[in-house]
Computed example of a mutant assay.
Amino acid sequence: MKTYKLTAFEANGEKLVDESFQADNDDAAKKRGEQLLSEKNLLEKTHRCTSPSGKLLLFHT
């Protein structure tokens, strides 16, 4: 398992979510990131999910 990072922000830069989670691969991490954002009603907020190597998996402004 790899550790991925999910962050979400308000327009003023305030962090709403800043957490790490585990996934087997990038595809699973992308799905898990979307699920976490959906559960927290943050899909429309600025967010990103990155892989351990720094690859951007999700991004929304």
Results as ranks from 00 to 15, higher is better:
M1Q: 02
M1E: 07
T3F: 00
T3K: 01
T3S: 01
Y4V: 00
Y4N: 00
K5C: 00
K5H: 08
K5P: 00
K5E: 04
L6G: 01
T7I: 01
T7Q: 13
T7H: 04
A8D: 01
A8I: 05
A8Q: 00
F9L: 03
E10Q: 06
E10Y: 00
A11V: 04
A11P: 00
N12I: 10
N12Y: 08
N12L: 02
G13Q: 04
G13W: 00
G13F: 00
G13I: 11
E14G: 04
E14M: 04
K15N: 08
L16N: 12
L16E: 09
L16S: 08
V17I: 14
V17R: 08
D18L: 05
D18Y: 10
E19Y: 03
S20V: 06
S20T: 13
D24K: 14
D24W: 07
N25Q: 13
N25H: 11
D26L: 05
D27V: 15
D27Y: 11
A28I: 15
A29M: 04
A29F: 00
K31H: 09
R32I: 14
R32Q: 14
G33C: 10
E34P: 01
E34F: 03
E34S: 13
Q35V: 11
L36A: 08
L37W: 02
L37P: 03
S38Y: 07
E39S: 12
E39K: 15
K40L: 15
N41T: 09
N41C: 10
N41R: 11
L42M: 10
L43T: 11
E44H: 14
E44W: 12
K45L: 01
K45Q: 08
T46A: 14
H47R: 02
H47M: 02
C49V: 15
S51L: 03
P52M: 02
P52D: 06
P52L: 09
S53R: 08
S53H: 06
S53P: 02
G54T: 02
K55T: 11
L57S: 02
L57T: 02
L58T: 04
L58D: 03
L58Y: 03
F59I: 07
F59T: 07
F59N: 05
H60A: 04
H60Y: 07
H60L: 10
